[in-house]
């Protein structure tokens, strides 16, 4: 059964995607390009073969993780825009732990690395939460400042202590630690770097969904997000909820590094994230903060990302950044207009 709220959400999401496509079409026409050719190339590149599909799923993997983390924050009305920094700190620590502990059995190394990464990313989420609680300063300002601080710190520790000479990356982790490539099992994806992180990402989305909608803490979290003052009168310790949600939300973003480190390269490299922490904001908003929706909106953005590379000689791939921005803005406007419309007509 689809509830009325979900139906309205579905309508506004579909409408805003259509409006975005329309705006981008006009924009391309103004620039003197053929939009049909460009969009055609994007989709034919992605769906041409197993490799294209595999690469698209590979690109969707970190987006799903980060967006799940953001969804936890957004549900508590915490507008975390510091994922870019948080995920880099966590991923860096994941790689370091895996390097230092490789004398332990494989599953334990992976587990400990992921836990350490989670804790470090989460810690950097605690700071803006603390400032919000104690000083009432918007987390938007502090998470952005934290991005600059964290990236500088990671860069400093990486280059001065851990990097392979004249590179921006750590050493390679033990080959045994590498995740299974999906193409080893399903030859359809031959050549693609898609790995078992993708399955974990889907699992993470389901778990995040259950966490937000089906647990006691998830209820408190949504309650605080909906109305902080009323939650306080209900006896919910709102400050604690804000701290914990920010910790968990920021912590999950660390897993974005899993795909790259365990699934692809075997090391942490500075700049691997390439502003994906900001793309995830668009992904999460488009999914209306619903972790299951996030899987689909991540796929959409992964298509744009991977397909964008193939049209790069026709139009700079930065076009996809414009598309992201337009999606967010049209979603905000359409959402409001649609929900106002239904309020007047149906209620």
């Amino acid at each position: 059964m689809i509830s009325k709220k979900n139906l309205i959400n579905l309508i506004s999401v579909t409408l805003s995607v259509l409006i975005t496509v329309l705006i981008v079409f006009v924009f391309l026409l103004i620039l003197g390009k053929d939009p049909f050719e460009i969009f055609g190339m994007i989709f034919s590149e992605v769906f041409a073969d197993g490799y294209g599909i595999g690469q698209t799923l590979f690109k969707a993997t970190p987006l799903i993780f980060i967006s799940c983390g953001l969804a936890v924050c957004f549900h508590a009305s915490l507008f975390n825009i510091g994922a870019e920094g948080q995920l880099n700190a966590g991923s860096f620590v994941i790689a370091l732990t895996a390097l230092k502990l490789d004398f332990l059995p494989v599953p334990i190394v992976i587990l400990i690395s992921l836990i350490f990464g989670f804790i470090v990313s989460g810690f950097f989420g605690i700071i803006p939460a603390y400032i919000k609680i104690k000083k009432d300063v918007s987390e938007v300002i502090t998470t952005i400042m934290m991005n600059f601080v964290i990236l500088a710190l990671v860069n400093f520790f990486l280059l001065d202590f851990f990097a392979v000479e004249s590179t921006m990356r750590t050493e390679k982790i033990n080959e045994d630690l590498m995740f299974l490539k999906i193409s080893d099992v399903l030859p359809f994806f031959d050549g693609s770097t898609l790995n078992s992180s993708f399955i974990l990402a889907i699992l993470a989305a389901v778990l995040t969904y259950l966490f937000i909608y089906k647990t006691g803490f998830g209820y408190k979290l949504r309650s605080v997000g909906f109305n902080e003052l009323a939650s306080k009168y209900l006896g919910i310790r709102t400050n604690g909820v804000i701290l914990i949600s920010f910790f968990i939300g920021a912590g999950i973003t660390a897993f974005a590094g899993m795909n790259y480190i365990f699934g692809y390269k075997g090391f942490y490299e500075f700049g691997f994230s390439n502003n994906i922490g900001f793309t995830a904001i668009a992904v999460t908003l488009l999914a209306k903060n619903n972790p299951i929706g996030i899987i689909f909106s991540s796929l959409l953005f992964a298509i744009l990302d991977y397909g964008g590379l193939s049209v790069n000689q026709l139009i700079p791939k930065e076009l996809m950044l414009v598309v992201q921005g337009i999606i967010i803005l049209s979603l905000l406007a359409v959402d409001k207009i649609v929900s106002n419309y239904f309020k007047e007509k149906l209620i």
């Binding site: 918007s138 950044l321 414009v322």
Partner: peptide, 27 residues
């Protein structure tokens, strides 16, 4: 006029403008 959440709108504008300037710079 639309009364959309001001912070989300602000972040949306920031991302849109950052993307637009990056794109036009290359273009």
């Amino acid at each position: 006029s639309l009364k959309i959440n001001q912070i989300v709108t602000g972040v949306g504008f920031n991302l849109f403008i950052a993307g637009l300037t990056k794109f036009l710079l290359v273009y």
